[in-house]
Amino acid sequence: MGVAIRVAGEADRELVVRLLDEAFQDDPVSNWVFPDPERRRAKHPGLMAAFTDVVLAEGRVDLAEDGSACALWLSVPAAGSHEGTGEGGGEGDGAQEDGPAQLRAAVDPDNERIELIGRLTADIHPEGRAHEYLWMIGVAPGRQGEGLGGALIESVLERCDREGLAAYLEASNARSRALYERLGFELSGRPLDLPDGPRMWPMWREPRPGGPARG
């Protein structure tokens, strides 16, 4: 599928936040973080804004030219490197230790699950090798199922394959897990079962000389 993709900048911030908010309102993990629908509608956009700000500052946001989808990536350095990846929920070695607590304080101080998910995903994040980390990918609800997410991911995986770089993500639902498996990701370690909540699947992809797998 031919999808025109560009790197988002600060001028695209509100578009990216809106995309992520709409795409993840009904996601199992977002529903666990904000189990009350009214509170989720009120607080979820702030959480997506915080994630967007981290990645705009420390990583890369790929955006479909028509504004229908976006992908948030962080480059995680090898163990022992002094390069950082910012703070927030789920990065690897570069995350500040108090990042999840700061995120909770900024978004919804009374919601301990914001801090908890940041710590739990950080705990399962692979250490050692440099890799590209797909933190989040969001597709507008009316455009899901068109292959936009796969196109955004493949554009980065092609570079990973050229450069011999691994990639990592956490799948938050079974449908996205199936997509990632088609692109060459495999389960990495044990799934993460959120307390009284859904399962997340840590997934790792080794670089492939032939490029991304297509199902």
Rank of each mutant, 00 (worst) to 15 (best):
L103F: 04
L103I: 10
L103Y: 05
R104T: 11
R104P: 02
A105D: 15
A105H: 04
A106H: 11
V107G: 11
V107R: 04
V107K: 07
D108V: 13
P109A: 15
N111G: 12
E112N: 00
R113L: 04
R113D: 00
I114A: 00
I114V: 13
L116C: 05
I117Y: 12
G118F: 07
G118Q: 09
G118C: 07
G118R: 05
R119G: 03
L120F: 01
L120G: 03
L120M: 13
L120R: 08
A122H: 15
A122T: 11
A122G: 09
A122Y: 10
A122W: 09
D123A: 15
D123T: 03
D123M: 08
D123Q: 12
I124P: 01
H125V: 12
H125W: 11
G128W: 08
R129Q: 15
A130C: 06
H131N: 10
E132P: 09
Y133M: 13
Y133H: 15
L134T: 03
L134Q: 03
W135Y: 08
M136I: 15
V139K: 01
V139F: 01
V139G: 01
A140F: 01
P141Q: 05
P141V: 07
P141L: 09
R143F: 06
G145I: 09
E146N: 01
E146Y: 00
E146Q: 09
E146M: 07
E146L: 09
G147D: 05
G147W: 00
G147N: 06
G147I: 02
L148W: 00
G149V: 07
G150R: 01
G150H: 01
A151Q: 06
A151L: 02
L152N: 04
L152T: 02
L152S: 05
I153M: 04
E154P: 00
E154G: 06
V156K: 12
V156G: 03
L157W: 01
L157S: 09
L157C: 14
E158G: 07
R159I: 06
C160S: 11
D161H: 04
R162S: 10
R162H: 10
E163Y: 09
E163K: 12
E163A: 13
G164K: 06
G164C: 07
L165A: 10
L165C: 09
L165H: 02
